[in-house]
C-alpha cells in the first residue's frame, strides 16, 4: 500500500446504453487504479442514456468502501461519444487520463496499467487496439485516412486510450476544436504508442458516423481538397480540349458546322472553362481558410533536445 504512486490520475468513462457492463468494468478499473495510485478520480459522462447504466454506476459507487472523487456529467441530449468524451476530458484534472469510450472489456484487464507503463516510458498517447480491425466501413475509412494523413501513427480501431496532461494541453492548443479525438491525438505531433491485444473489439462498438468520417478527412488530411482540386483541373482540361476541338472544326473542318454550333460551343466551353478555373481558385482559398481557422499552431514539436 505504501508504494503507490503519487501521480493523480483520472478515468473518463462514457455512459451510453451499456447496462450490465458497469459493475464488472468498474470493479476491475477501480481495483487496479487504487492498487497503483494514491489518488485517482472518476469522471462519467452520461450521454442521455436511458437504460439504467447510470443507476448501475451509482449503485457501484455507493457500495464502494472508500470511493474516489467521482464526477458525473449529464449531457442535455444525446451528442455522441466524441462530444461527450471531450466534455469528460475538460473536466478531468489528472496528470494522466484514461479515456474509455465503452465499458465493455474485450481486452485483458491488465492492459489498463500496461498502458500507463507505456505512457511513463515517454509515450504521451497510448491507445489499446484489438488485433482484428472491425467492420468493412471502418476499415475502408482507416485505410483512406492513413494513406492521406501525414501523421506517422496510423489510425485503427481502439478500445481505450491513455493521455498525459501534456498531450491534452497539446491537443487543445493545436486545433480550435477536437471533432475526432483519435485523429487529433495522432496529429498532435507527440509520441504515440499502440498496444495490441489478440482478438476483436467485440461489443466495443465503433462510434464513427459517416459525416464525422468525412469531416475528419477534411480537417486532418488534405484528401478532400486534393480530390476536389483534381476534379476541377480535369474538368478544366476537358473544357480546354473541347474549346480547341471547336476552333479546329471551325477553321479546318471539311464541311462547315451547323449554323450557330461554333458560337454555342465557344460560349459553352469558354463559360465552363471560366467556371472551373474560378472553382479551383476558390477551393484553394477554402482549404487555406480551414487551415487558418482550425490550426492554431504552424508547426508541431515532439520534443526539444539540447545536445551541448
Amino acid at each position: 500500500m505504501e508504494n503507490r504512486e503519487k501521480n493523480y490520475v483520472s478515468a473518463v468513462v462514457y455512459l451510453g446504453n451499456e447496462a450490465g457492463c458497469a459493475a464488472p468494468f468498474l470493479a476491475e478499473l477501480c481495483g487496479r487504479l487504487a492498487e497503483r495510485f494514491e489518488q485517482y478520480e472518476l469522471v462519467f459522462v452520461n450521454d442521455a442514456s436511458g437504460d439504467g447504466t447510470e443507476a448501475e454506476v451509482r449503485r457501484f459507487i455507493d457500495e464502494m468502501d472508500a470511493p474516489p472523487p467521482v464526477t458525473l456529467i449529464h449531457l442535455s441530449l444525446r451528442q455522441g461519444v466524441e462530444a461527450a468524451m471531450n466534455a469528460g476530458l475538460d473536466m478531468a484534472v489528472g496528470d494522466f487520463v484514461w479515456e474509455f469510450d465503452t465499458m465493455a472489456m474485450p481486452y485483458p484487464p491488465e492492459m489498463i496499467l500496461k498502458a500507463y507503463d507505456a505512457c511513463i516510458e515517454g509515450h504521451d498517447i497510448v491507445s489499446v487496439s484489438p488485433s482484428k480491425n472491425r467492420g468493412a466501413g471502418a476499415g475502408l475509412f482507416y485505410r483512406l485516412f492513413n494513406s492521406a494523413s501525414r501523421s506517422p501513427y496510423p489510425l485503427r480501431t481502439d478500445v481505450f486510450r491513455l493521455l498525459s496532461r501534456r498531450a491534452i494541453n497539446r491537443v487543445r492548443s493545436v486545433t480550435a476544436s477536437t471533432p475526432y479525438r483519435k485523429a487529433a491525438y495522432a496529429a498532435s505531433g507527440l509520441s504515440m504508442k499502440q498496444l495490441v491485444f489478440p482478438g476483436s473489439a467485440g461489443r466495443a462498438v465503433e462510434h464513427l458516423r459517416f459525416s464525422r468520417a468525412v469531416s475528419s478527412l477534411a480537417l486532418y488530411t488534405d484528401v478532400g481538397s486534393r480530390v476536389s482540386l483534381a476534379i476541377a483541373f480535369i474538368m478544366l482540361a476537358l473544357m480546354l480540349v473541347a474549346l480547341v476541338y471547336t476552333l479546329v472544326v471551325f477553321f479546318a473542318g471539311a464541311q462547315a458546322p451547323a449554323e450557330g454550333w461554333t458560337t454555342t460551343m465557344l460560349l459553352l466551353t469558354g463559360g465552363f472553362f471560366g467556371v472551373f478555373l474560378i472553382m479551383s481558385i476558390v477551393l484553394r482559398y477554402l482549404s487555406l481558410l480551414v487551415e487558418l481557422i482550425f490550426r492554431k499552431q504552424s508547426y508541431l514539436v515532439e520534443s526539444v533536445e539540447r545536445l551541448v
Binding site: Y8, Q39, E41, P69, V93, G94, D95, R165
Partner: peptide, 12 residues
C-alpha cells in the same frame, strides 16, 4: 483532506 484533488485542480 481533499488537498490532493484541490491542488490537482488548481495546478491543472
Amino acid at each position: 483532506s481533499a488537498w490532493p484533488s484541490m491542488s490537482q485542480l488548481a495546478r491543472k
